[in-house]
Amino acid sequence: MERAEANLLRRGRFSEPGRLYLLTTVTHQRCPLFRDLRAARLVIREMRQSERFDACRSLAWVLMPDHLHWLIALNATTLSSLMRQFKSRSGTALCKAGISLGQVWQRGYHDRALRKEDDVRKVARYIIANPLRAGLARQIGDYPHWDAIWLTSDSESLHNAL
Rank of each mutant, 00 (worst) to 15 (best):
S155H: 00
R57L: 09
G12H: 07
M83A: 03
Q106T: 00
I149P: 00
R48G: 09
D118G: 10
L33D: 13
E16L: 15
I128S: 11
T77S: 02
L68E: 00
K122D: 15
S100C: 12
F53W: 08
A124S: 15
L68M: 06
R30A: 09
N160I: 03
P144D: 04
Q139W: 01
R30H: 10
F86Y: 15
Q139C: 03
L22N: 07
A39W: 04
D154L: 08
L74P: 06
S88G: 15
A4E: 10
I127L: 11
T25I: 04
S100V: 03
R41P: 04
R30Y: 06
R112V: 01
A124R: 14
A137M: 11
H145P: 02
A113G: 01
R13D: 10
D66T: 07
D119I: 13
D154I: 07
P144A: 10
R125H: 14
R11L: 13
R30C: 08
S15Y: 11
T27A: 04
A6T: 00
R115C: 03
L162M: 10
H110S: 02
M1A: 09
G135V: 09
K116E: 07
L82K: 04
L151Q: 03
W150G: 08
R13E: 13
R138K: 15
P131Q: 13
I72F: 01
D54G: 09
R35S: 15
